[in-house]
Simulated scan of single mutants.
Amino acid sequence: MQDEQNNNLQDEAASGAAAAAEGAQGAETAEDRLASAEAKLAEMQDAFLRAKADTENIRRRAQEDIAKAHKFAIENFAEALVPVKDSLEMALKVESPTIESLKEGVEMTLKQLASAFEKNRLLEINPAQGEKLDPMKHQAISMVPADQDVNTIVSVLQKGYTIADRLLRPALVTVSQQKGS
C-alpha cells in the first residue's frame, strides 16, 4: 500500500511538474504576446507622430503659399503696366511735340494698356446698340424713347470691365423704354 501511495505521490508530483511546465510555457507565450503588442504600439505611435508632423508641415507650407500669393497677386499686372507708364513719361519729355506725334504716342500707349489688360484677363464690357440689358453686366442710367425693343441698349455712356470673369465695373448705358411712354 505504501508503494501505491508512493506511486500516487510520484504521479501527482509528475502531474504538478507537467502542469507547472505547461503554465510556464503559457506565461512565456503571454509575455511574448505582450512584448509583441508593446513593440507594435511603439511602431504605431511613431507612425502617428510622423503623420502628424507631415500634416503640420503641409499645413504650414500651404499657409506660406497663400501668404505669398496674396502678397504677389498683382505682380503680373504691375509688370504689364510699367511699360505704359514709361511711354507716358517719354511723351512728356518731348520738347516740341506735334499733334500727330502726340496722337501716335497716345495710340501706342493705349495699345500697350489694352495688351496689359488682356494678359491679366481684364476685359471690356462694351455692349452693342440693340443688345438686351443684362443687369449682371450693365447699369441703366436712364430710359429713352427709341425705335427698338424695350429694355435694349440705346447707347453706352461708359464701358464696363470684368476681371477673370468677375464684374469689376458695370457698363453705364441708356436703355429703350416702351414706345409712346
Rank of each mutant, 00 (worst) to 15 (best):
13 A>P: 09
15 S>F: 04
16 G>W: 05
16 G>D: 08
18 A>H: 09
21 A>M: 05
23 G>F: 10
24 A>E: 10
28 E>P: 12
31 E>W: 15
34 L>N: 12
34 L>I: 15
34 L>F: 14
35 A>P: 14
35 A>H: 13
36 S>E: 14
37 A>Q: 08
37 A>R: 12
37 A>D: 09
38 E>K: 14
38 E>C: 14
39 A>S: 11
39 A>R: 09
40 K>W: 10
40 K>N: 11
40 K>P: 14
41 L>T: 06
42 A>G: 03
42 A>T: 14
42 A>Q: 14
42 A>H: 13
43 E>S: 08
44 M>T: 15
44 M>S: 13
45 Q>K: 15
46 D>T: 10
46 D>F: 09
46 D>P: 08
49 L>G: 05
49 L>W: 08
50 R>P: 07
50 R>Q: 13
51 A>N: 08
51 A>H: 06
53 A>S: 03
54 D>W: 08
55 T>I: 11
57 N>A: 12
57 N>M: 04
59 R>A: 06
59 R>E: 07
60 R>P: 08
61 R>Q: 14
61 R>C: 07
61 R>H: 09
64 E>R: 07
65 D>M: 10
66 I>T: 06
66 I>Y: 00
67 A>D: 05
68 K>V: 03
68 K>W: 01
69 A>W: 00
69 A>E: 01
69 A>P: 07
70 H>L: 04
70 H>E: 08
73 A>S: 07
73 A>T: 02
74 I>D: 02
74 I>A: 14
76 N>T: 11
79 E>Y: 05
79 E>R: 12
79 E>G: 13
80 A>M: 02
81 L>Y: 00
84 V>N: 01
84 V>K: 01
86 D>V: 10
87 S>M: 01
88 L>M: 00
88 L>I: 07
89 E>Y: 05
89 E>S: 11
89 E>C: 05
90 M>A: 08
91 A>D: 01
92 L>E: 07
93 K>T: 03
97 P>C: 00
100 E>K: 06
101 S>N: 04
103 K>G: 02
104 E>N: 10
104 E>G: 07
105 G>N: 03
106 V>G: 02
106 V>I: 05
106 V>T: 02
108 M>W: 09
109 T>H: 00
110 L>A: 12
110 L>N: 12
111 K>E: 03
111 K>C: 03
114 A>G: 06
115 S>R: 11
115 S>I: 08
117 F>M: 11
117 F>T: 03
118 E>D: 09
118 E>M: 05
118 E>W: 04
119 K>T: 12
119 K>Q: 09
119 K>M: 04
